[in-house]
Design a protein around this nucleic acid. Structure first.
Lengths: 252, 252
DNA sequence: GCGAAACGAACATCAATGGTGTTTGAATGT
DNA sequence: ACATTCAAACACCATTGATGTTCGTTTCGC
């Protein structure tokens, strides 16, 4: 059992019981307690849990979005395929606003090296894109959320308002026919809306686990997005409903 | 002779002759030609030189600013000491605008982890500061200059204009009593001026090699900066002249 | 076209790095 | 006070990155 699997184990137990013990994890993983402690210390510095004597307790309340470091480990293959398809929808020379989040970061990796202009709404995205000399990066301003490294607030919205894009690439926490596109955070909602206002088209990217999901922050009715790229595991009926609203749904 | 020294050798020969040969470098460095080729390939991808058959030719015109990858290797110790002193001038809780460049990046490293609010004008600066949960990062927008990764253009100036800072930390290409603070690039000049406009105080950081230097872009008369931090190797007479203009010059 | 020089891909080697386990003494909670 | 937990220190191993060598291919000058 390697490091990644141990993290999965910790996260699973925290989700079930809300707390884990060092000895119990050492037993279950077949590694020493010292290694488990180092794992927990790292996860604590990433904001996933809080260390207590003998183990750790969960810091992720039920129903809320898990931290970036956990999300980036989910549905990696699907996200990569979706990102490739989204990047293919962006023609050479286009200008796009690129959302924050793990899926959008994959899109950034796909776009890097192509002659396009991108305004990423996260520092990781800016970092990936700026390495390439071919790609023009128009950095967005804004407050940086620790851990997530995405940009929000009035400066971010003002940056978006100052430019007109051919397309906005949105990552979403939830997409459903009834409740439209939703996000976990209200500040992110404002940013996503600003992205859409400044763009001719809106492309939403969401792996199949997000289809049919509804979270707290309402971004827009589903009909306002032009294209939704998701993976083939998306539930048929939910996809059909979204298609019925006039959205071009692409499954990869 | 290690990798860093070989780069120094290549840069020195390019500066003297404008071109270098692979065999000649292999002889001088005591390494194989294959290693030299790999060095040159890396420097080519960093924009320092262009590979030609048998060697490479310089891409850095005389009198212009060398690329970031070369500057970050100069006066490292002095920059670190200067940066520590600059960071000490920033009180807890203050808001500062932080310039781009190698010296400013060192300042970012010093500020990271302290409870201050920083608007860095480079992606590297943002990256360094955002890792710390204590530090509030207010990212500036703007076009990203490839290689340098600093921010400029109207979006950067608008980001600065939207906030008021306690201090602006400027890196400079040249500081002299007669010609004031100067930079190599006119777009950088505009950004530096915007930083000063939005800040109560201006702190300039420049290692001793910059003292007395004058470059193309004029930022401001020397009297408009409040504090100049430099190292002890700065020429006495130039420092005295700058002091006479009312600048608090700190040498470390 | 031909030959010599230069190139770069592939593999071997070595040092540096990061992750892991063990020991041991200090810190902590009951 | 005591057992448990913790963390620093060191040893160990796997992985990574830099370097050198070999060899077939490419390129330039003639």
């Amino acid at each position: 059992m390697d490091s990644a699997e141990r993290v999965d184990l910790v996260v699973a137990r925290l989700k079930d019981a809300g707390e884990v013990g060092v000895a119990e994890l050492a037993e279950a993983s077949g590694h020493s307690e010292m290694t488990i402690r180092r794992d927990l210390d790292r996860l604590e510095s990433q904001g996933v849990l809080r260390r207590v004597r003998g183990g750790a307790v969960s810091l992720v309340p039920r129903g809320q979005e898990p931290p970036y470091v956990l999300r980036e480990r989910q549905a990696v293959e699907a996200k990569r395929r979706i990102a490739a398809r989204v990047a293919a929808l962006v023609p050479t020379g286009a200008a796009v606003a690129l959302d924050s989040g793990t899926t959008a970061l994959e899109v950034a990796r796909e776009l890097a090296g192509r002659p396009v202009t991108v305004m990423p709404l996260s520092l990781q995205g800016a970092d990936v894109l700026a390495r390439s000399a071919e790609t023009t990066v128009l950095a967005a301003g804004g407050e940086v959320r620790p851990g997530e490294l995405n940009l929000h607030g009035p400066l971010a919205e003002a940056s978006l308002a100052a430019v007109r894009f051919d397309a906005a690439v949105l990552g979403c926490c939830g997409v459903s026919a009834g409740d439209g596109v939703t996000a976990h955070d209200l500040q992110d909602v404002a940013v996503k809306r600003a992205m859409m206002r400044s763009s001719q088209r809106t492309i939403a990217a969401a792996d199949s686990t997000k289809i049919g999901l509804v979270t707290m922050g309402h971004v827009c009715p589903v009909g306002e997005i032009d294209t939704l790229v998701t993976d083939a595991d998306a539930p048929e009926d939910a996809v059909a409903e979204i298609r019925a609203a006039g959205v071009d749904v692409v499954t990869v």
